[in-house]
Computed example of a mutant assay.
Amino acid sequence: MDELVDILDSEGNFTGKTAMKSMAHKQGLFHPTVHVWFYTKNAKILLQLRGKDKDTHPLLWDVSVAGHMGAGEDSETTAIREVSEEIGLEINKGDLDKIGVFKSVQRHNDTLIDCEFHHAYLCELKVPLSRLKKQNSEVEDLKLIPLIQFSEETWGLANLKNYVPHGLEYYKSVIKAIKIRL
Rank of each mutant, 00 (worst) to 15 (best):
C123R: 02
E153T: 09
S84C: 04
N159L: 12
R181C: 04
E153V: 05
V127N: 02
F30Q: 00
P58H: 02
R107Q: 14
V83K: 15
A158G: 01
W61E: 04
W37D: 00
L29P: 01
K143N: 01
S84F: 05
E116R: 05
N92C: 09
L157S: 10
H68S: 09
C115V: 08
D2F: 10
V63Q: 01
K52S: 15
L96D: 07
Y171W: 05
H57M: 14
Y121V: 12
H166Q: 08
I175E: 04
E153L: 02
S151G: 02
T15P: 10
D110I: 14
L157P: 00
G156H: 11
A79K: 10
I178R: 05
S84N: 13
L89H: 12
I175M: 06
D110C: 09
K98H: 13
L46T: 03
T154S: 03
I45G: 01
V34Q: 06
K52I: 14
H68E: 06
I7D: 06
M69Y: 04
R181N: 09
H119I: 11
V105L: 03
H68C: 05
G156M: 06
K98A: 15
L47V: 14
G28E: 06
A43H: 04
G88E: 03
Y121M: 08
K98P: 15
T77N: 06
L47I: 15
A79I: 11
T154M: 04
T15N: 04
E116V: 14
A158W: 14
E152Q: 14
A66S: 12
T33K: 01
G51C: 05
G28K: 12
L96P: 07
K98T: 11
Q27K: 11
V34E: 10
I80N: 09
D110R: 14
I87V: 15
I87K: 01
D55R: 05
K52T: 14
A120H: 05
K41Q: 09
S84K: 13
S173D: 09
H25N: 12
